[in-house]
């Protein structure tokens, strides 16, 4: 009898949870403290305003309906954060940002965008099928243990104070894309592979970003590419490039060796083997 009652109770609880409808949002402004859990479906732009704060719980799925208001071929769904965002998933229950298309593709939605955000923390997040898996500008943020895949840009930033560690960035057009613009970025123990371009140094880099102890290997066109207006040199010490042979490493760079107007990419002290992204906290 007890077992029967317990079973009924469990079923009722499961039923209640399973029956909880997804949160459906169109263009929405968040100006207070909100918490998302379960499934959140977005068809529009959700803006967390300066005074707003959004916490996303582990296991939450944020699904962007693919819609293109301006017909430019880039989806217009986005989560724009000007206030606070804490998206802290777990290894077992990551937070997923994805497309709602039946056949999803890159740029189905625009981006998760932190712009002058007061707080930005992403951990154990998966972001996929966006134009940019995440874009971070003019703020301090941490991005750890996350996965950026099937986007145009995986992780993109400019003018930030950013720590990015333990992330897996793969199958994007640009794995990591940045305009340094006096950023204090520190990228380490990230696995950046199988993108068209591993690291795209677009412009305005003064070689201040610390990008070391990452795996930047096996990217389809180049492991590192300098943008058209990146005339200053960039130094990327102590990374794993898939080889320790200097000539092979250099072949995977698009820099002054291809176009004299560009800066030179140098890769001193290349690592002898890949780093383990999961062990970034131990370093």
């Amino acid at each position: 009898m007890r077992f029967a009652l317990l079973a009924i109770l469990i079923l009722v609880v499961i039923g209640c949870v399973a029956a909880k409808p997804p949160l459906e949002l169109a263009d929405t402004v968040i100006a207070d403290r909100q918490v998302w859990a379960g499934e959140v479906r977005i068809r529009g732009v959700v803006t967390v305003k300066k005074d707003g704060h959004l916490t996303i719980l582990p296991g939450t799925r944020v699904v962007f309906a693919p819609f293109d208001r301006d017909g430019d071929g880039i989806g217009d769904g986005e989560l724009l954060v000007e206030g606070g965002l804490v998206a802290r998933g777990t290894a077992a229950a990551p937070i997923v940002f994805t497309s709602g298309a039946a056949r999803p593709k890159a740029a189905d939605w625009k981006y998760l965008y932190l712009d002058f955000a007061r707080e930005g923390e992403l951990a154990h997040v998966i972001s996929e099928y966006a134009y940019s898996g995440v874009q971070i500008h003019f703020c301090r943020a941490t991005v750890t243990d996350s996965e950026f895949r099937f986007n145009v840009d995986g992780l993109r930033f400019s003018t930030v104070n950013l720590l990015a560690a333990g992330n897996r960035v793969h199958h994007n057009v640009h794995g990591v894309r940045f305009e340094e613009r006096r950023s204090q970025a520190y990228l380490h123990h990230n696995d950046i592979r199988d993108n068209d371009i591993g690291l795209f140094v677009v412009t305005r880099s003064d070689d201040a970003a610390r990008i070391e102890r990452n795996n930047i290997a096996g990217n389809r066109q180049y492991n590192v590419k300098m943008g058209l207006e990146q005339a200053k040199d960039v130094t990327l010490p102590r990374n794993w490039w898939g080889s320790t042979e200097p000539a092979l490493i250099e072949q995977s760079f698009f820099d002054r060796r291809s176009d004299p107007s560009l800066g030179l990419v140098s890769a001193p002290e290349p690592l002898a083997g890949p780093v383990d992204p999961a062990r970034w906290q131990a370093q």
Binding site: D72, G73, I74, K110, Y111, Y113, D115, F116, Y131, S132, Q135, H137, F138, S158, T159, E179, R181, R182, V202, T203, R204, E229
Partner: peptide, 19 residues
């Protein structure tokens, strides 16, 4: 200057930019 300078709009800083 340090705070506002980087925030000045620039085509290169456009988040997605014009297609």
């Amino acid at each position: 200057a340090l705070a506002v300078g980087p925030a000045l709009p620039s085509p290169a800083a456009a988040c997605v930019g014009k297609t």
